[in-house]
Amino acid sequence: MMLLFLMCIENVEDRTKLEEIYVKYHRTMYFIALDILRDPHSAQDAVQTAILKVVKYLDRINDIDCNKTKHLIVTIIKSTSIDLYRQKKKETNLHSDLVDEITDFQASNIEDLVIKTSEVHELLRKLIEINSDYADILTLKFYHDFNDKEIAQLLNISHENARVRLFRAKAALKKIIGSERSKDLEYKGMCENEGSY
């Protein structure tokens, strides 16, 4: 832990920002860490490590209370806690990320991928059902605008793992879109058939 003390917050504004973040999220962070680690001491370690990680992303945080910041804080404490859990249990398969079943992705027809904004919510729900990590990584990449290397650091995974997870997240989403389109076509076909009777 002492090594982490070497990190330096460069100015008063950043220190104030970090303090505001801590005041707003410290309980939530501890709650999430405790939920994952099931041990108060480990949860404390996770919160400390996560706070120190937050320092690195202070320049990306403009509004302490916005959804973007909430997602970032939750992602940091979750990934930190999971990493700590892995270290303590020496388990490597807590996440099913690299052994999941989505390997049969085939490129879809572009026309099939055009969707309406109103459908996004349903797509997201299904994506979370498959694996919420996919939603996380898409959010980090396309909403927060992190690059693959930054995502890897934030999630405590290798650069290659980040790249693979991102690929799989996109593939999963396209697959969902594809299946939604199939249903639409089936439904449309049924309606047309009904009309012909």
Binding site: K68, V120, H121, A135, L138, T139, F142, Y143, H144, K170
Partner: peptide, 13 residues
């Protein structure tokens, strides 16, 4: 779409 997914996921969180 990815951006919208991210935005809505942040709202979800």
């Amino acid at each position: 779409l990815y951006y919208q997914i991210g935005k809505q996921y942040a709202e979800h969180i």
